[in-house]
Design a protein around this nucleic acid. Structure first.
Lengths: 160, 160
DNA sequence: CGGTTAATGTTGCTCACAGCAACTATCGAA
DNA sequence: TTCGATAGTTGCTGTGAGCAACATTAACCG
């Protein structure tokens, strides 16, 4: 069906060989994105019907990596602080995390997942509603290293 | 700072070794996503200020792979037809594509990038406003194959 | 000490997108 | 011709990105 699509040499690059790998790689990237979103959505809903996917990502981070401040999450998740602030508010409203003022810095708030929330996250994971993290964990260290390298080259600021 | 974060054995998996690769892999995935979005946004804007990133992805596909119908784009881009329909409308409004009724099926519309649009896409690409496709093209066939495999395992429906 | 600068969060706003559902129009087949 | 499937369009809602303005507190510096 998609047999001989590609219009001439639009990308006049030294493309080794014809390549189905190009198309495949692009589609996989899209797929990764979409399936991850899908999975997160399902998992989030199974923890609490009103839990947004992104908020679940926040919760997961707190459960896995322990208490943190919003600014740490900005770094780890790479999301704007405004977005995080809202997700955090919602998590607190749902009783999944607690927000305590930091004892050394009155601006900062220490975010802690409640035991109940941690238990639910673990349960959801165990329930085989798999996630990216689990899959990555099943790889060998080397595979992950290769993966990181390849992705890194894909995202490098500029390479030539 | 983030020294010894990870709370106990929350994920009781056979995790080869401690692993910075886990964290790195996750961050890279996020990074891939964000930088790709960013780049697309920039490129889209440089073609037309009112061009949405996703609409640019559509245009790019049409330029690279030739004329197609909306339903083909659903397959290739994995996006809902409603979203595509709107992007297509906007592309037409901006004069970047043309929509002709298919001669064999009056329901379908054949989408064609205008020569002007194709020229702009090519120019933007050449202008070193690099994109994922170009980077992938710079890899070896083998690297791409590994990449596809790894990503595939990340998105597989269920592996155990 | 007081004043400036920086950092933590919160809130308001806008836009991009996903995705379901309902609908029209057309095709293909029973 | 009637029925079911398919191509697209449109309306709606929810999620998220991200900028900008703001309040609060910290840290620095003369």
């Amino acid at each position: 069906m998609t047999g001989g699509g590609r219009a001439a040499g639009v990308t006049d690059l030294p493309t080794d060989l014809p390549d189905e790998t190009m198309v495949a790689a692009e589609q996989q990237i899209g797929l990764l994105f979409r399936t991850a979103m899908q999975r997160w959505k399902e998992q989030a809903a199974s923890i609490h019907p009103d839990l947004a996917p992104k908020a679940f990502a926040v919760l997961r981070t707190l459960v896995d990596d322990g208490p943190a401040q919003a600014r740490d999450l900005v770094t780890r998740l790479g999301t704007d602080k405004s977005v995080l602030s809202r997700q955090i508010t919602s998590l607190e409203r749902l009783g999944l995390i607690e927000r305590e003022v930091d004892e050394h810095d009155a601006r900062a708030r220490r975010l802690v997942a409640t035991p109940a929330a941690a238990a639910r996250v673990t349960r959801v994971r165990a329930a085989r509603h798999d996630d990216v993290r689990r899959r990555l964990a099943a790889w060998t260290r080397e595979e992950r290293a290769v993966f990181v390298d390849l992705l890194g080259r894909l995202t490098a600021p500029d390479d030539a």
